[in-house]
Design a protein around this nucleic acid. Structure first.
Lengths: 191, 191
DNA sequence: CGCGCGATTGAGTAATTTCAAATCTAGTGG
DNA sequence: CCACTAGATTTGAAATTACTCAATCGCGCG
């Protein structure tokens, strides 16, 4: 088992426990992939065959509006997951694009394999349920931030929550993620 | 099986299928409860023993900030679910309050029973996984709305998405849900 | 060395909030 | 049935916040 595989295992075992055999089986459902910085993995309008576990690197999911503005909905770094969830789970076309901000190594999972894995190993269904629940809670917090705080407080919350992210991502993208213009964020930083 | 029980069954069977016996078992994990309008079911600071399926009525989850402003994070009407998810799943104290906007009938589920049900009936674990995934997707859309649209567009999106909700909920609360002041929403309405 | 991306700054404009007051409406008790 | 009241909605005006557009600055990489 290489280093990146053990990252996946460790990630899963933060939620459930697996025997060696079980993990070997789990691993068989995934396909490792390597992407270069700037590589566009999902494009708006495409079908979305995979959900990705990020073992190394940094990726973002975003939507570009009709007016040409990019709005970042999600970042995934080590131990994160990323895809266009709606398109992936419903088999519809992507409304989001996903690309690499750094050279990245991921484990790709098709919907078919995900469902098969959940059927075969209830533990993994439990894993995904809990992981998704945690994701739901995180999104609720982000919404609460968006509807209740000023831009400045949102930035500081992000800084507290994901200090490492701020270091690795250009401020322009942080602004996009927070829903403010880059100029506004820039003026807020000294505060 | 009474009318409200069959609502629960129908709701679950939109995602998975159940035999009569299985549903009887599922039902045994829930406890039906009736609440009056204005009843405060979860208070900020309380522990949260239950997650609720709303069979009838209308409820809201909100956080009141230090400055005394109420921010509504979630509405649940017929066939919806509601709780403070973070407090419920982690056993921590509620940061949200939940109360009834109408007389309501719910099925209450403890965390212990939820986990037991998932263990005993994998179908139900699958149900919750899929339901939570759908919830996650809905929250992502709401975030995209919040970071990319003006207040006016957010209102119209809500109007399209949940026309029935708008009819049953005072505009003040819609404004709180959208993250704008009630005055601003009022001025937007004619648009 | 120079290019290009990211970050900053300034000025003017637009959107939203706040505070205050007026108006409207549905439900209640007499 | 009417008067009353509490909650909900609307409106006005001033203040704040954030946005846009444009120009400049800084720096790392080729």
């Amino acid at each position: 088992m290489n280093q990146l595989e053990s990252k996946l295992r460790h990630h899963i075992e933060q939620t459930i426990t697996l025997t060696d055999d079980e993990f070997a089986q789990v691993l068989s459902y995934f396909k490792p992939k390597v992407f270069k910085k700037h590589h566009l993995i999902i494009q708006q309008g495409d079908y979305v065959p995979h959900e990705y576990f990020v073992a190394k690197g940094l990726m973002k999911a975003a939507r570009t509006s009709a007016e040409g503005k990019e709005h970042i909905i999600h970042f995934a770094m080590e131990n994160g997951w990323i895809t266009d969830p709606e398109a992936f789970h419903n088999g519809t076309k992507a409304s989001l694009s996903v690309d690499c901000l750094e050279d990245s190594t991921v484990f790709a999972l098709t919907l078919e394999n995900k469902e098969k894995m959940c059927r075969d190993l209830q533990k993994m269904e439990s894993f995904f349920r809990k992981k998704t629940t945690a994701g739901y809670i995180a999104l609720q917090k982000r919404i609460m931030c968006l509807i209740s705080s000023k831009a400045s407080d949102r930035y500081h919350y992000l800084l507290e929550q994901y200090p490492d992210l701020i270091k690795r991502v250009p401020k322009t993208m942080i602004a996009s993620y927070l829903g403010v213009s880059r100029e506004t964020l820039s003026r807020l930083l000294p505060v």
